[in-house]
Amino acid sequence: MLPDHATRSRMSGAGKIGLAALTLTGCGGPQSVLNTAGSDARVLLTMLSVMLVGLVIIWILVNGMMLFFNQLQTGAHEERYARYLIVGGGIFFPTLVITALLVWGLSIMPDQRAPGDGLRVEVTGEQWWWRIAYWPEGAETPVIAANEIRLPVGQRVEFDLKSARVIHSFWIPALGGKMDMFPGRDTRLSLEPTEVGIFRGQCAEFCGASHALMAFHVVTMEPADFDAWLAAQAAPAMAPDGDLARRGAAIFAEQGCGACHAVRGSDASGQVGPDLTHVGSRLSLGAGILAPTLANYMAWIDHTGDIKPEVEMPAYDHLGDDELTALATYLMGLK
């Protein structure tokens, strides 16, 4: 169901990502805290490693002690040792360890919430997809996209997080921590990608029937590639190329898809569902859950609700296979 993912392969240029070329590398896959590609995530990983070592040592000491007193010791010890044990193990040792850990933990908090360097990305959680608007520094109007986030490496990006109806949580494990998205309350997050690659993010706060199916891809790019890509995204949609695609565009119009979806440069200007202007350039379909193949496009339009329970988009199961093929071809052509 999910497209091949992968991480950390150098990319030649914007918009030319061949999925087949990507391989699964690194530790734990595309959505892993352990597979870091951002400065915040790296700090958290260091912290995790140190705490994990401490955890293992303390666990062995405490349980070793219990095992010894339970099974191995031959006779009772003197009572004053017991008092040393309680004061030393119960008060002194934890106070020292925890003070150090707390100071360290607190000290990294301001950095993790540092203000961004210019680019702002507004992400709105919908049931169950992501509405995305890029606001480059000084921009008056945003570049609208959906269900995929591309970021330039080497700069801190600010995320303005909102939600339409229910609470969601925005999370890209490879880049840093997560932040909840509330209706009627704005939250913010800032992340600094440091490595080029393709990663996966997912909604972390339970948000209804298809909570499990609300993901997105994150593509980190060299700044120049990113600028080129963003300029391409800002442009209106390409005209349908070929008869099949043109027929698809006609079906798109006559089925009323434009009431919910926008395809900039055509009559479709609906705001209810994801913007489809460049849907064909995205790495996934249905908010990070399907590989963008012709078959998947057709299946999605044909029976949305079976793939994503309780989704708002109706199933267009009255369309024949040839109509679905045309529609899918048109959409896939919207690079």
């Binding site: 925890i98 003070t99 707390l102 100071v103 607190l106 000290s107 908090m109 301001p110």
Partner: peptide
């Protein structure tokens, strides 16, 4: 003793952070 440690812990963030962010 425990409350003393608790109060000292709780005051740490206000000493370490310069803003509400």
């Amino acid at each position: 003793v425990v409350s003393f440690i608790g109060v000292v812990f709780v005051i740490l963030p206000i000493l370490m952070f310069g803003s509400c962010r």
